[in-house]
Design a protein around this nucleic acid. Structure first.
Lengths: 124, 124
DNA sequence: GCTTATGCATAATATTCTTATGTATCTTTG
DNA sequence: CAAAGATACATAAGAATATTATGCATAAGC
């Protein structure tokens, strides 16, 4: 279904989203301090009107990777009989988040030039 | 080298570029009517100050795929004893190019909201 | 009670790119 | 004039990153 409708029913062809997951996660964590996986998926869905939907099969391995790299630390909390795993940026993680967001803003500007889109994006 | 320097020496972490190759190629073809592969790699390098460098290992298979899908047609031209393969958008290819560029502009806007970047990008 | 939502996780597969390799001609430069 | 670099195509092996499918378990809504 490669027509105008696909943009109304809330999906990008998946290849575009590829590569932005880490940036999105780091941005959310840099704003909210502490989030758990499921919360991240819902927040992204909400903020993008379901245009970007993060799958759990992509998110959880990514979070584990960030933890292994020392970008985030985790805290497991019991909610009734269920478990919630909260993720928090380390100080090096906050640095990494800034870099990633700056990089993305710069990338967008480059793409705008290439595709004749306007105007430029700034991240301050 | 995850620091500010990597943005000056002209490289994005490769995952960002992933997914944008088809959009870039279709955009260039929609402007220049007729281009050959090597020309595309050089044009992108030039327009982006070497920030985006398309590798041949990615480009040629993509062009072949576009041809198989009827998005482009090819014309082989002899330059001396060498061969050049020119690619031209079909009419359905021109339609596809517009869709892809529109989709990307929309994606950028969504990401801007998500990442608190401003302002919005418009493609008219 | 049954369905949906919440919440974690992993494995198999698909997609898309990088890196490496191969072939061949043309141009520049010491 | 020989070597190096640029031009021009192509494909294969491997890496990275995502989707889809599956699994388990508790909580909430109807």
């Amino acid at each position: 279904m490669h027509n105008i409708l696909m943009y109304l029913c809330g999906m990008y062809s998946s290849e575009l989203i590829k590569g932005t997951l880490k940036t999105i996660v780091l941005k959310l964590l840099s704003e909210t301090k502490q989030m758990y996986g499921y919360e991240i998926t819902q927040k992204v869905k909400e903020l993008t009107d379901s245009k970007i939907v993060i799958t759990e099969g992509a998110l959880y391995p990514m979070l584990h990777q960030l933890e292994a790299e020392g970008i985030v630390t985790t805290e497991t909390v019991n909610i009734g009989k269920r478990v919630r795993k909260y993720y928090t940026l380390t100080s090096s993680g906050e640095e990494r988040a800034k870099e990633k967001i700056f990089e993305f803003a710069d990338f967008i500007n480059t793409m705008n030039v290439l595709l004749d889109l306007k105007p430029r994006v700034s991240y301050v």
